[in-house]
Simulated scan of single mutants.
Amino acid sequence: MTRPFRFGVVAPLTTDLPTWLARVRRIADSGYSTLLMPDVPQWQPAPGPTLATAAALTDLRVGTWVYASPLRPAWMTAWEAHSLSVLTDGRFEMGIATGRPGIEDELRRLGLPAVPPSERLAQVRETVTALRDLDGPDRHTPVAMAVSGPKARALAVDVADTVTFALHDVPRAEVARLARDSRAVRDLELALHVPVVGDTVAPFMAHPATDPAALHAMDSLAVLPDDPAAAAEEIQRRREEIGFSYFVFGADVADAFAPVVAELAGH
């Protein structure tokens, strides 16, 4: 099954509020599907109230990209996600994963237990299970999972609606194989997190030390050309050859890629 294209923007609130609100309106007016917030304590306002503000301002879908499972008890994350789904009338998508590389140091700074990856993955399952219980039979909050290892991929196939592969430094052919293997089990939506456009690394979407030249050299799927026409052609190629239909960019390229979204969204 070929899914229609949709596009999301990771747009943390890092400016004054009026500037951010104006950006949110432009993103909505440009035809993007989803406004997304990272989960980075103390760098920005918390995802929940920020996303609720964006959803009240526009008709955008909103989502976390992504909750880090060890930062909160599973029931608390599920409760917030369910609440956002209710308050946005079904326009919320819960993105979740086990946390960025180095999250153990962040957990210690926050006074939280630095649990191993296996426990963090169990927290993801527990969170999704609690969310489904809160949603009940009449609501289904979409779940997106960012995955890398085989256990996380297996969990995503079991419980998620959307999967994105946190494998920026892995060559295209290997990510393509993993994507096809996942969709062979179940018809998941495949999302592509694109932190590098041209030679620019989007804030909050990759480590600041990310080397765009190295990613270009290995033909990484984490990169798109900065020319909108070339980007549109490559996006279509990635859906045709691999199955990616949901593309997520940083806010700094949202205006420049508006023509891409106008051409492809919904098709």
Rank of each mutant, 00 (worst) to 15 (best):
F7W: 08
G8F: 09
V9M: 07
R23W: 02
R26P: 01
A28R: 11
D29G: 15
T34R: 11
L35S: 06
M37F: 15
V40D: 12
P41E: 02
Q42P: 00
Q42I: 04
T53A: 14
D59P: 06
R61D: 15
R72V: 06
A74K: 04
A78W: 05
A78V: 13
W79P: 00
A81Q: 03
L87N: 06
L87F: 12
D89T: 12
D89A: 14
E93Y: 00
M94D: 03
I96K: 02
G99P: 01
G99H: 01
G99W: 00
P101M: 10
I103S: 04
D105Y: 12
E106L: 15
V115L: 15
P116I: 00
S118A: 13
E119I: 08
V124S: 08
R125I: 13
R125S: 15
T127Q: 07
V128I: 15
L131Q: 06
L131I: 14
D133R: 15
L134R: 09
D138E: 15
V143H: 04
S148V: 00
G149V: 02
P150E: 09
P150K: 06
K151I: 02
A152P: 01
V159Q: 09
A160Q: 11
V170F: 07
E174N: 08
V175H: 09
A176T: 14
A179L: 07
R180Q: 14
D181L: 08
S182I: 08
S182V: 08
S182D: 13
V185E: 14
A191H: 09
P195G: 08
V197T: 10
D199A: 07
T200K: 13
T200A: 15
V201M: 08
V201H: 04
A202T: 09
F204E: 14
M205I: 10
A206D: 13
P208G: 07
A209H: 09
T210W: 01
T210Y: 02
P212Q: 01
L215I: 04
A217Y: 00
S220N: 07
A222F: 05
A222T: 06
L224P: 05
A232T: 10
R239T: 01
G243C: 03
G243H: 05
V248R: 11
F249C: 05
A251C: 00
E263C: 06
